[in-house]
Design a binder for these strands. Structure first.
Lengths: 251, 251
DNA sequence: CGTGGGTTTGACACACTTCAAAAATAGTGG
DNA sequence: CCACTATTTTTGAAGTGTGTCAAACCCACG
């Protein structure tokens, strides 16, 4: 059985961004026990408060993590895609402090935390890699705090579009200047702390300025990456996508 | 030399919240090489973009982590106090994605990342504990995303006051219904994504409703914890303060 | 072809911002 | 312990980005 034929392969592509893994380590990761599930669109996989004992790996499709606040409002905390190991945080913390929902139909692998623990206990480099992965997650959270806390509506949306394009590019190389954004304007609003009505107007404004083109309602084309990044006050460093490169270069 | 006389003792009080540590492990943590620094108020210890090779442990005083956005606005990302191991994130990620600044005069211990790495490589339980610590950090970030993204000004400020009281209580047991909040209204504004003018009005409103009393400009007294928690849409679970208790009970 | 989710529009409301000045407080040195 | 200054808080008035509500429109899909 070659590596490519393993179900969990997408995870490797992601983890390799953070650290070098030996062939043996990659093999061990691929051999993690799991079972694969096909989900519907808009399916809630984990609820805030759940006792969690599994991690979810996205094999295909898109998910979000979210919180519901007191007045019923919803805040999306992060957007995830192929290769993302979701909910390791919840699993290790034991009790979920947020929910997880699919945006599209997904293929997900459900991996018992116990198996991950067993593996990381004998493979320190894997533990470090997973730790690193959760740290990058934290870094993205921090950027989002700044995004919803201190940026204008237009800037927030532009920033989100940039982040999505870059994350997509990282796990799915190819020119991601045009992509399908699997989110309704309402979901975009939940991610940026705006209302769907305002998101609609912002998207129109971005299109009017030529920063994006709206091919269909779900498909956007970045008209001018540099301008969009500027408008979105976007600096990719918080994604730490160059971590492995930097590591290889300096040590 | 007894444990209590070690400079790094405050760290233990914090880490014990997350997991049980053996006497040997605690000893090893206390023996981490470090040197202690006394800082001024409003001193910037780390800047966004810095190459970081040390972690900071707060021995006394208060610090914040922050980001500056494109238009010059500042967003505070988290507030830290005695026992918090700051900047382990930045250190492991290698390049700082945010800055660190003191709010008050502080005693800080500067610990080389290399020493932490050496220690965690031979003490897996310590590595797990530090990982857990960074995961709780992430959980707090998520709550902040929801706080600044989806809550009203009044709710945001009330939420912050609740969080501060509970974190203080965790490392400094005693009744923290009255405490000194070492932040100006401008800093409060930077933490909540509001303006200082609005924070001022919100504080007056909270006081008018009897939820807090403003003893001096820096000292607040929580008039009615339950009501303040309700007004702040505050649920302590995201702080994971009961993690160690839960762990001891179930395993 | 309905039909229901998603998008778009318009008119209006308001939470929060902006600007600017006054009042209070804290810090400093004599 | 008082004067002097800088910082922080407070207040007022006016502006605006974003929210609210509600209706119309547009498709994708069964």
């Amino acid at each position: 059985m070659t590596i490519a034929s393993h179900a969990l392969t997408p995870m490797l592509r992601k983890l390799r961004l953070w650290r070098h893994l030996t062939a043996r380590e990659e093999e061990a990761l691929l051999n993690l026990p799991h079972h694969v599930i096909s989900t519907d669109r808009l399916q809630t996989l984990v609820n805030d408060g759940d006792v969690v004992s599994h991690a979810w790996l996205i094999l295909s499709g898109f998910c979000v993590r979210f919180k519901i606040v007191g007045d019923g409002g919803r805040q999306i905390l992060s957007i995830h895609m192929m290769g993302d190991l979701l909910d390791l945080q919840n699993a290790i913390l034991g009790v979920a402090d947020h929910g997880i929902q699919t945006l599209t139909k997904c293929e997900m692998a459900r991996i018992p935390l116990a198996a991950i623990k067993t593996l990381t206990d004998v493979e320190p480099n894997i533990k470090d890699t997973l730790w690193f992965d959760t740290l990058v997650d934290g870094s993205i959270h921090r950027e989002w705090v700044a995004n919803v806390g201190r940026r204008s509506g237009k800037t927030r949306v532009a920033h989100l579009l940039c982040e999505f394009a870059l994350k997509l590019e990282a796990v799915h190389p190819g020119d991601q200047l045009k992509y399908e954004l699997p989110m309704t304007q309402e979901q975009l609003a939940d991610a940026t702390g705006l209302t769907s009505v305002h998101v609609n107007r912002v998207l129109q404004a971005l299109a009017a300025d030529g920063l994006i083109q709206r091919v269909t309602s779900k498909s956007i084309l970045i008209g001018d990456w540099k301008k969009l990044a500027t408008a979105g006050d976007f600096n990719r460093s918080y994604l730490h996508l160059d971590a492995a490169v930097r590591r290889a270069g300096t040590s």
